[in-house]
Computed example of a mutant assay.
Amino acid sequence: MKANAPGLPVVFVHGMRVSGTMWQPVIDTLGTRHPIAAPDLPGHGSRRGEPFTLAGAVAAVTDAIDALGGRALVVGLSLGGYVAVETAGSHPDRVLGLVAMGCTATPRGLLGAVYRGAARAAARYPQEANRLSAFGFRRTLPGPQAHAMISGGLTCGAMPDVARAVSAMDPLAALAAYPGPVWLVNGERDHFRRDERRFLRACRDGRLIVRPRCGHISGLADTEALARQVRDAAAVVTVGRAGATSIPTHHTASTEGPR
């Protein structure tokens, strides 16, 4: 956590089976302007062994927000994106803005069944699944980003609890309940973008950004682009708080590539 900085507080929420360390390259790129937290969710990282629940995950995020002063921009990827969406919908007073990445698929139907089946298989052989996950991260990401994904420990044994919790949630309702600005960010090749237009329509103040040639986690390779996305979102929130009594409802779509 970085404190005593003048910028907008930011809370990063990690994905399934990894930990808050996954965000360290982005945090390092952002520098010290923003107070930052990247908590571990139940069942992950320093909290391995705890049962994962959606309520517990939201509590971890709100505790991190409170530690930064009570209001923050929340940024999440994959599981972290779903948790960030749920946090925004249930605690809109604490979430100044929401950047939800790789989480615009309704977690039901065939995708949900595949997701739960893969989770059960990973939990049956957790050590092997952890090794395969580490191998996959090293093949997909540059060295520093892969190290960040792995360094906090991998916990594939938590995956069934995660799959059940995410499958039971209603992210569209959570987005509809949140009045603040939302950035839905997907890789062009991400299988979790299939319902992105429905998610965008559910937002009161939403934007959709599709990053060309990126997959579900390969977008983490471009740390500068992710840091720029966070800075841009923080700037919009800061201007909105300073110059408007209310944020107008609108929906936009765009694409972003390397600059």
Rank of each mutant, 00 (worst) to 15 (best):
K2S: 08
V13R: 08
V18F: 02
M22V: 06
Q24S: 03
P25L: 00
V26M: 13
L30E: 11
R33Y: 14
R33M: 06
H34G: 01
I36F: 04
A38C: 12
P42V: 11
G43A: 01
G45W: 01
R48A: 15
R48F: 00
G49S: 11
L54V: 12
G56Q: 06
G56P: 07
A57L: 10
V58E: 09
A59D: 14
A59T: 14
A64K: 02
I65T: 03
I65R: 08
D66A: 15
A67E: 12
G70T: 12
L73S: 08
V75H: 04
G76N: 05
L77N: 11
S78G: 09
L79V: 11
V83L: 10
V83C: 05
A84M: 00
V85Q: 10
V85F: 01
A88W: 05
G89T: 11
G89C: 14
S90W: 09
P92C: 09
P92V: 03
L98A: 06
L98E: 08
L98H: 03
G102E: 04
T104C: 14
G109Y: 04
A113P: 07
V114T: 15
V114H: 09
Y115G: 04
R116S: 14
A122K: 06
P126F: 04
Q127C: 00
L132A: 10
S133W: 05
A134N: 01
F135C: 14
R138M: 11
R139N: 09
R139K: 15
R139G: 13
R139M: 12
L141K: 08
P142S: 15
P142T: 13
Q145M: 05
H147V: 00
H147T: 10
A148R: 07
M149W: 09
S151H: 08
T155V: 05
T155S: 10
C156W: 06
C156T: 14
C156K: 04
M159W: 03
P160Q: 13
D161M: 07
V162G: 12
V162A: 05
V162Y: 04
A165W: 02
V166R: 07
A168M: 09
P171G: 08
L172E: 11
A173G: 11
A176S: 15
P179C: 12
P179E: 13
P179V: 10
W183E: 04
V185R: 07
N186P: 04
G187D: 05
R193N: 12
D195N: 13
R204K: 15
D205Y: 03
I209R: 07
V210Q: 00
V210C: 05
R213C: 10
C214A: 14
C214P: 02
L220F: 15
D222W: 10
L226K: 07
A227H: 07
Q229K: 01
Q229E: 02
V230T: 10
V236M: 05
T238L: 02
G240N: 14
A242Q: 15
G243E: 09
A244K: 13
I247R: 07
P248E: 13
T252P: 02
A253S: 12
A253P: 04
T255F: 04
P258Y: 03
R259V: 13
R259G: 03
